[in-house]
Amino acid sequence: MNSFVNVLLRGGFLLLSVIALQPAVFASVDDAQSFALQAAETYVKQGFQVREDYWGGDLGSGEKKAVRQQLFKGNEYWFWLGTEVDRAKVSVHVYDSDGKLAEEPDGWEKGHFAAAHVVPKTTGSYFIIVSVEQSPEERTHWALVYGFR
C-alpha cells in the first residue's frame, strides 16, 4: 500500500512538473506565429491580405536573421514579427537589394511585437532583418508574417 501511495505521489509530482513546465518546454514557432498574426489583425480591417505562409525559427539575444522577399512596386506591404516570450524585445527592418533602408517611418516595436511598413519604389528583392534585441530566454522563437494590399 505504501509503495502504491509512493508511486502515486511520484507520478502526480511528475505530471504536475510537466504541466508547470509546459509553456517553456513546448512553446513553439506556432505560438510565435499566433502573436505575429495578432499584430496583423488591425491591418486586415484596412484591406491587407495576410499570407498564410510565414517564416519562423529561434534566435538568441542580439542575434539577427535575414529573410529575402520579392516585393512588387504598386503594392504596399506590412511585415509583422512576434514572439511568445513576454519580456523579449524584437525588431524588424526592411532593406532593398543595395542594402539601403527601405521602410516607411511608421514601423513600430512594442515589446514582443514589431512591424515594418514598405511601399516599394522598385520591383525586386528586399531583405527583411528580424532581430531578438533582448530576451530572458536562451533561445527565443520568432515568426514573421506579411500582408499586402
Binding site: R51, D53, W55, K64, K65, A66, V67, R68, Q69, Q70, F72, S125, F127
Partner: peptide, 9 residues
C-alpha cells in the same frame, strides 16, 4: 544568414 526566397502568390 539569409533564408530562402518566399514565392509570392
Amino acid at each position: 544568414t539569409v533564408e530562402d526566397v518566399v514565392v509570392p502568390l
